[in-house]
Design a protein around this nucleic acid. Structure first.
Lengths: 353, 353
DNA sequence: TTGTACGCGTTATCAC
DNA sequence: GTGATAACGCGTACAA
């Protein structure tokens, strides 16, 4: 090493030397894990300031501690698509809460295989939260398990003793359907979430249900069909207002076959259906009842309050975070089943005919 | 160490020993940084599988390499609020792209001081991207700089040679305004983004402008006022359809003072204004012209195409990612000024009166 | 192509 | 309250 090398960043050892104390003492000054004489602490801090030392290198600390403080969240598909869904964002918020004590933050990752194996293999994370459960998620799961990382799955079945956070989608969807049934509706149509990643907009056939890969869609559909076994259903490409608008136009086009109520599998879709009704001069709920699912603060609805099933999106995230925290303390992670709560709004009423 | 200790996880040294090779050889097998005889590679892989070794520990690797592969993204406020804005999500998508080569992922962080200093101080990240520029962002910036991490600021001024990615907000807003002026509009009202983090819904006074902290809002307003110096403006609480709806109702309530055109500072707000017009039975663009800003694929607009200024949101993120990548290679980061592009849609037309 | 030896920067453990 | 020392698990010159 000659004197014209790049000036190396100061380390805690340099600071300790400059302050005339042991490195362990300097370390304790920064970590606060033990009490230090005020005078020595001052000397160390002064030396640090002098050398431009900005605290322990997190990389070295992670190695030594065996913890990085980072939890990975694996989403399927583009980030944009994931975050377009208000339920996902609410869940992420809950997750940060549930993780608040131990986590430095949330590492967003796509379950995209990439070139040389998933980045998931090389990320310094302490635990992983998997969201949804496509085929690719399964591959991510294998990597995570072989690394021996704690993992929690939200809305998906990872099998074999992996803790998960689930929703009573089927029962909750049935509740909403029953509400319409009790109001007297018999001519009801359904608008579903995408059945698979292709997201085809088309009538839902039994064959399509059998080959569907999105569990949520199938579960909610099953609940609705418990009450209305023969109700026609149409699938959307994603959970968006404009998707609901398209589906609504299709379903409402022909006055002869027009349903008296439409059940949507998400609030955004329901908002779109309402807009389609307004376009056609139909009043909600007088001429058409519309119900959604999720219970998010739907933007774009104006004064109406949507009849829906409120899912505990934030709690879902928080629960996942808490299970991760438990597992990091060595306790086993628990599988939790959360329940939705029916909420009657102003978009449903008895049929007029 | 007694035999009833917790079984320690296998390390690369264990694998090498089991395979009868040197640790360096085993290391190379996993990193692929040099060629290894096929036979030895097999032996190493077999030994690894045998011991349940899942590849090098990323924490140790980061220390050794001096890189973690993680880039932090600091957002202001709740994650939910940030991701509710489609511009932000589009930007994040671009960021992941621009970072694709070197990054394991992006670490989401709030610029929330927290209890014991920002988590930003202890996160093992290689670089930081700051978004927006509130007062608190300034604090985050100090931490980052003292740690000597490369940093890029999007839509904000960090001062003193910190690379940033900016938009020509003022000029672009003026372009949109000029379009309306050229169509013949003289009675124009403005709806702005929030002026500060409080997000008060109220008429915009000069005093409020002077104390505003959100640069984007002020810049776009300046551009609009270049063309319509005396146009009344009203601020929203955030960039949401329902916020636009509220503002629209206020501005359109009184037929006597009703403007012939409304300029909104975001597309979502514009969508809300259009809904307010529809509520009142006003046709867009015949009775009222509406223009937005952002050029996002606005959900909930139906068949109308919004007249707006299309901002390169994805490019903004990508550019930030690329500058980060550059800085990590030791080259200086560049400040980039991106420009918006005016797009005429079907929501603006000459005034009818 | 393979092996040896060292350092990356920190923190936990113990003795003083 | 403070100090010496040994890991933590890996990558990489360098020598063989």
């Amino acid at each position: 090493m000659t004197s014209h090398d790049t000036p190396r960043r100061a380390t805690i050892a340099d600071v300790a030397r400059a302050a005339g104390v042991a490195t362990s003492t300097a370390s304790v000054v920064f970590s606060g894990k033990a009490s230090v004489a005020a005078a020595t602490r001052e000397r160390v801090l002064a030396a640090a300031a002098d050398l431009g030392y900005a605290g322990p290198d997190p990389r070295a600390a992670s190695l030594r501690r065996g913890r990085s403080g980072i939890v990975a969240v694996v989403l399927e598909g583009h980030l944009r698509a994931a975050f377009l869904d208000p339920v996902t964002t609410a869940m992420m918020d809950g997750l940060t809460d549930g993780l608040a004590d131990l986590s430095a933050g949330i590492l967003l990752m796509r379950d995209d295989p990439g070139d040389d194996g998933s980045p998931l293999s090389n990320a310094p994370v302490d635990a992983v939260v998997l969201i949804g459960c496509s085929g690719r998620t399964k591959a991510s799961l294998d990597i995570v398990r072989s690394r021996g990382l704690p993992v929690v799955v939200i809305e998906g079945d990872a099998g074999e003793g992996i803790p998960r956070i689930t929703l009573d989608n089927t029962a909750a969807a049935a509740d909403v359907a029953r509400h319409l049934y009790d109001l007297g509706h018999r001519e009801v149509a359904l608008v579903t979430l995408p059945l698979d990643t292709r997201g085809e907009r088309a009538p839902v056939t039994q064959e399509r249900i059998d080959t569907a890969t999105v569990e949520v869609t199938v579960d909610r559909l099953a609940g609705m069909r418990e009450v209305f076994p023969t109700a026609p259903a149409i699938s959307t490409g994603s959970s968006l207002i404009d998707e609901g608008l398209l589906a609504g136009r299709t379903l409402l086009a022909d006055p002869a076959t027009r349903p008296t109520a439409i059940l949507a599998q998400s609030d955004l879709i329901a908002v779109g259906v309402i807009r389609a009704a307004e376009e056609l001069g139909l009043r909600v709920p007088e001429d058409l009842s519309v119900a959604g699912f999720d219970g998010i603060a739907a933007d774009g609805l104006g004064d109406l309050v949507l009849t829906t099933s409120v899912q505990p999106a934030v709690e879902k995230g928080r629960a996942a975070g808490e299970q991760v925290a438990r597992m990091l303390q060595g306790e086993p992670g628990l599988t939790l089943h959360l329940t939705c709560r029916f909420r009657e709004g102003t978009t449903t009423a008895p049929p007029s005919r």
